[in-house]
């Protein structure tokens, strides 16, 4: 587990016909798929779709955290058999431990992975700087605002320099203003390191604002119905409307959602 090993490279994710069925027999629930994914190293890909379409399930399947019912996944060309460790995870809820300070929450990665303490601490300090968290190190989660808690959660996901970051609606619980700022901060971190990001969202603005590619999913059982490459310069501005193309991309996604019956106007 050398954190330097993957410096500058992200993992590739290839999934073929992955399907998730919860339960068996009459109670079986077909939650997802079959879907295919081809994510290049260092690519920023968003999955967007209605609630319950299996976006989060997709994320858990490609990271090996939940068993796949059918199909297979390859990470960096190697078949996925167990949970990937070269990964950082951020959920909608910060899921920080109340009994640890911000820095201790981040250093949990170092403790459990038994990495070098001084090295990890300097990486954590650098991330705190980049994520505008300086001064929050010794605060407990309840002493931080929602936005700062989520920033700590991102620092925890990145401190061990994983080759892939999966984020399940990470900004979903934040107010619109914090969300725009944290979107930019995440983009800057990604531009510096170019790790593979699988980003799950309900927000068209976030998907277009952050991604190289947006995969649009249908209602449950979710399938990928459209793939949209986002060709906008980076870093992208706070107000995405500055780009006329933004309206075109957004319109495309709205149209798909209307066609799928996600929206009914």
């Amino acid at each position: 587990m050398d954190p330097q090993k993957n410096q500058g490279t992200g993992a590739s994710i290839v999934a073929r016909d992955i399907t998730k069925i919860y339960g068996t027999g009459a109670d079986a629930f077909h939650a997802l798929g079959p879907i295919d994914l081809d994510i290049k190293p260092g690519e920023f890909v968003s999955l967007i779709g209605p609630s319950g379409c299996g976006k989060s399930t997709t994320m858990l399947l490609v990271s090996g955290l939940e068993p796949i019912s059918q199909g297979h996944v390859e990470i960096d060309g190697k078949p996925l058999t167990k949970p990937i460790s070269e990964i950082g995870i951020v959920f909608q809820d910060h899921l920080l431990l109340d009994f640890r300070t911000a820095i201790q929450n981040v250093m949990l990665q170092q403790e459990i992975r038994k990495l070098d303490k001084a090295d990890m601490r300097s990486r954590a300090d650098a991330l705190f700087e980049q994520l505008d968290l300086v001064g929050a190190e010794d605060k407990y989660p309840w002493q931080l605002s929602g936005g700062m808690r989520q920033r700590v959660s991102i620092a925890r996901a990145l401190v061990h320099d994983p080759s892939m970051l999966i984020m399940d609606e990470p900004f979903g619980a934040l107010d619109a203003i914090s969300r725009t700022q944290i979107r930019h901060d995440l983009e800057m971190l990604w531009l510096a390191k170019r790790k593979t990001v699988l980003f799950i969202t309900h927000s068209i603005e976030e998907a277009v604002g952050l991604s190289d590619r947006v995969l649009v999913m249908s209602k449950s059982p979710g399938c990928i119905v459209e793939e949209i490459s986002i060709d906008l310069p980076r870093p992208r501005p706070a107000h995405l409307g500055e780009y006329p193309e933004f309206a075109v991309y957004a319109k495309k996604i709205y149209t798909i959602f209307e066609k799928l019956g996600v929206y009914n106007f």
Binding site: L60, P83, I87, L97, L108, E111, I112, R113
Partner: peptide, 25 residues
């Protein structure tokens, strides 16, 4: 329970999960 996804991705042993997460939490 989603916290266990994060600890599993860290490769936490059952003892680590108990003493560092479940018990203090």
């Amino acid at each position: 329970p989603r916290l266990y996804y994060i600890t599993r991705s860290m490769g936490a042993s059952p003892a680590q999960t108990f003493f560092r997460i479940r018990l203090p939490a």
